[in-house]
Structures are given as C-alpha cells and as structure tokens.
Amino acid sequence: MLRFLVARTGNPVEAEDLLQELWLRTREAPPGPIANGRAYLYRAAQNLVLDRIREARRREARDKDWSDSQAETIAGDRVDPQPRALDAMIAREDNAALHAAIARLPEGAGRAFRLHKLEGLPHAEVAARLGISRSGVEKHIAVAMAHLRRALEN
C-alpha cells in the first residue's frame, strides 16, 4: 500500500501520512460486509490522494488571492475604492494645469491638438477641417505635445 501511495504522490513522507490516515479511517469505518477488502483499501487510498490534490489546489488559489490582495495593499497602503482627498485634490490641480497649458498653445497647434486628441478625429479629417496637409497636422501636434510637456514639467 505504501508503494501505491508513493507512486501516486511522488513523496514518501506524504505517502506515509496518507497511509496513517487510511489506517485511521478504515479503523473508524462503519462496520459492515466488504466484498473485496483489498479493492476497498486501494479505492480508499486513491480517494485520499485525490482529496490531497484538491486541497492543495484550493490552498494555492487561496494563497494566490491573498498574495494578490497583499500586493494591492502594499502598493496603495490600503485598498480603498474611493480616492483619498489628497489624491482628488492633486488630480483636480493636474487637470487645471493641463487645461491651462492647452489654452496657451499656439493657435494652429492648439486647433490641431484639440481636434485630434480631444475630439478624436483622425489626422486626415483634421487636415481637411484646417485646410492643411496631413504632414502639417502631424507637425502641429508635435509642436503642441512639446509645449505641453514643457508646461507640465514645472
């Protein structure tokens, strides 16, 4: 029986634990006739091995869920679906700074940027609306991005 369990688990120590558990379970089994005692023991041993495998899978899933939640807690000090007041204030300030920087863009770059980035129009459509080439749109957007990058770095 021990060889059977070692072959199923791949671990002699775990096989010994399972053999002991099998002995305890069969000892506490309700009395009654068993047609084939050997088959009964092997089936009970196989069931114990399957129970251990299921238990290990549940434990791994539980541990993974726990470690994922711990990573979230460590990354954000706590898991809070509501942003903290300081985070909300910083977001409002960043948003205001971005709007102010967009308002200060040069005229052509600002129009191209608003049409493409804010309204979601493709370069060809922006070019048609502004009466310039697609290459001109790309240059205006590059200028706008450079201005915004410099304005928001401060």
Rank of each mutant, 00 (worst) to 15 (best):
Y42V: 07
N95Y: 05
V137Q: 00
R58I: 13
G136Q: 04
N11E: 13
E153F: 04
H116I: 07
A101E: 05
P33F: 13
R27N: 10
T9V: 10
V13L: 12
I102E: 03
K64T: 15
A109S: 15
A144M: 08
W66D: 10
D94A: 15
Q46P: 00
D65Y: 14
T73H: 02
D63F: 09
Q82L: 14
A44T: 14
G131M: 05
A7E: 12
R3V: 11
K139H: 08
P12I: 06
D87W: 06
A144C: 08
A151C: 02
R59P: 03
R43G: 07
P106I: 03
R3C: 12
A124I: 13
P33H: 13
E60I: 08
E153M: 09
D17G: 15
A96F: 01
D65P: 13
N36K: 09
I141D: 01
E119L: 10
A44I: 05
K117Y: 15
D17K: 13
S135K: 09
R25W: 02
Q46Y: 04
I141W: 00
R78Y: 10
A7F: 04
E138Y: 13
R43N: 09
S135A: 13
A35H: 08
E16H: 14
Y42F: 11
H140P: 02
T73P: 01
M1Y: 10
I34P: 09
A101I: 10
T26R: 11
R8F: 02
R129C: 00
L2K: 03
T26E: 11
A112S: 12
A124F: 07
E153L: 09
L19E: 05
E153R: 12
W66T: 14
A85V: 04
E119V: 04
E14A: 12
D68Q: 11
Q70D: 02
E93Y: 04
R150P: 00
E93C: 04
V143H: 02
Y40E: 14
A75D: 09
N95K: 11
G10L: 06
S135D: 10
D63M: 14
